[in-house]
């Protein structure tokens, strides 16, 4: 367990805070949760760096997928879930294709994002997509300019999806409500979210 520095000076306490890794920093269930959700052998990472070397986000940010793999192996749950870089994976799966241990690091990231959502850690744009799908069935709904263009092409103004058949929307809502997804999204957005 990290030593508390009771120096009565928050700035100093932060500067000199205990950096040792203690086994108590780990949540072993985190690795298990990641493995279940990602359906990949996340514990088998041997830190070769192929993933980061393949990553289009790495060269333009501090995002290092290898670091998230390490945090997963060690069960460093809060360190992983609170790192905003978690949301910079474009899910291109290049790391997954090249990983010599046959792990899917991309799916590890997806699993960690799912786990972050359980702690209400989630960027607003993701929640807005949730709301759009809940309300319209589409993540990117139709608009008037497009409707006009569709008609000009001889298509229906609204496509034969939930737009053309809105009676299908309640089915989608029922499924999402089953997981209380919309309520959670609304609540997090209302509370100010990230």
């Amino acid at each position: 367990m990290a030593t508390d520095k009771n120096y009565g000076n928050p700035e100093l306490e932060n500067k000199l805070r205990d950096r040792y890794y203690y086994t108590t920093d780990s949540n072993p269930e985190f690795l298990e949760d990641v493995k279940t959700l990602s359906r990949t052998i996340a514990h088998m990472c041997f830190q070769c760096g192929t993933c980061t070397g393949s990553c289009p986000s790495a060269p333009r940010s501090s995002y290092r997928i290898r670091l998230f793999m390490r945090r997963g192996v060690l069960g460093l749950e809060q360190e992983a879930l609170n790192d905003p870089d978690l949301w910079l994976c474009t899910t291109c799966y290049s790391c997954t294709d090249r990983c010599p241990r046959d792990i899917a690091p991309t799916d590890v990231i997806m699993a960690m994002r799912n786990l972050a959502f359980k702690y209400d850690i989630v960027p607003r744009n993701f929640l807005k997509t949730v709301q759009l799908i809940y309300n319209t069935g589409h993540g990117v709904p139709n608009n008037d300019v497009n409707r006009a263009a569709r008609v000009k092409l001889g298509l229906t103004a609204d496509p034969p999806t939930t737009h053309g058949y809105p009676e299908f929307i309640p089915g989608i809502q029922k499924i999402m409500d089953h997981y209380e997804m919309k309520d959670n999204a609304d609540r997090i957005l209302a509370e100010g979210g990230q």
Binding site: L37, M110, N114, T129, G139, T161, T162, M176, Y179
Partner: peptide, 24 residues
């Protein structure tokens, strides 16, 4: 495919809850 909706978006939506992604 009448009444189809969003696939739903694998990144934007799957990132939140894979189980809802499977179901939708």
């Amino acid at each position: 495919l009448k009444g189809a909706g969003c696939c739903p978006a694998p990144g934007a939506f799957g990132s939140i809850d894979l189980h809802v992604w499977y179901a939708l």
